[in-house]
Design a protein around this nucleic acid. Structure first.
Length: 160
DNA sequence: GCCAACGTTGGC
DNA sequence: GCCAACGTTGGC
């Protein structure tokens, strides 16, 4: 049982999947598809485990930052959107018998009382080693330490 | 909309 | 296998 939990941060572009959208459906499942980066793929395929807590981060909008909490509910399986010609994440190079891309399902848990913005995380000394505050960090799935995870929850008004 | 950082591609 | 060119991400 006592498998150590790994904590994660995932980024979402609100144009693709917005926080408002998932927050309107409490306990809904989110298909976390469309990741087309090998490093992020490796994390998803190999390391995101059922029950792992996830920080939900909004990128490319006015208030970038962590908006709430989710949890992994289904471990990796092939990302079917890669084979859908009409899909924006269609990848002609991937083979059905040997999938390149994987996805997981998440369950939306709850919104923070307040968004923990990127600027705020950057100005919090305790979070200075977090990946997301580092320059040029573009991975859409990143591991987070428990300490950082708890700190972000605290800033967001959600003591775990 | 700009631009820096980074990942991927492809010529050699 | 190197590296320049190109494309994409994402903060500002």
């Amino acid at each position: 049982m006592a498998v150590k939990k790994q904590y994660w941060l995932i980024k979402s572009d609100p144009e693709t999947l917005s926080f408002d959208e998932v927050n309107a459906r409490p306990n809904s499942t989110i298909d976390w598809n469309g990741v087309r980066n090998y490093q992020a793929r490796n994390f998803m395929r190999d390391e995101l485990k059922k029950g792992d807590p996830v920080l939900f981060y909004h990128s490319q909008c006015k208030d970038t930052g962590v908006v709430g909490l989710a949890e992994v509910v289904r471990e990796s399986y092939p990302d079917h959107t890669a084979w859908d010609k009409k899909h924006r994440y269609y990848d002609p190079k991937t083979d059905k018998d040997n999938p390149t891309w994987y996805m997981v399902d998440l369950k939306w848990k709850k919104a923070f009382k307040r968004t923990v913005t990127l600027a705020e995380m950057k100005s919090t000394p305790a979070l200075k080693s977090m990946r997301v505050v580092q320059r040029g960090q573009r991975l859409s799935v990143q591991p987070v330490t428990k300490k950082d995870f708890d700190q972000v929850c605290k800033l967001g008004g959600e003591n775990q």
